[in-house]
């Protein structure tokens, strides 16, 4: 079971968290300005890299805050976590 460092609560067991998919996929400012293809891309298409991946996590059974994490999808290791109002973690930080 992973040990995940919530930026608010510190390291806690994985069971307290819920996964929220890729980070940095903002709700489009003007959905109507997007073609059907571009909207479907926003809706359904996500990256699936092997290696560091910026993700959203939710401390569901804790402080109930969403936060960002950089996780290596090959090793499951959390490389960094950050509050939503902090810069999105990048590889190497």
């Amino acid at each position: 079971m992973l040990l995940i460092r919530c930026p608010w609560c510190g390291p806690r067991d994985e069971v307290e968290f819920r996964y929220g998919g890729q980070a940095g996929i903002a709700y489009p400012a003007d959905p109507d300005g997007l073609s059907d293809e571009a909207w479907a891309d926003y809706l359904f298409m996500r990256d699936n890299p092997k290696g560091p991946f910026a993700e959203r996590w939710f401390h569901a059974a804790g402080c109930r805050r969403w936060f960002h994490a950089l996780r290596d999808t090959a090793t499951h290791r959390f490389l960094a976590t950050a509050r939503l109002d902090e810069p999105l973690p990048e590889a190497g930080t």
Binding site: G20, R56, F58, A60, R65, W66, L84, D85
Partner: peptide, 13 residues
């Protein structure tokens, strides 16, 4: 409730 909190925190803080 989860949906409300998610949108409030992540899109419309």
């Amino acid at each position: 409730l989860d949906r409300f909190e998610e949108w409030l925190q992540t899109e419309w803080p």
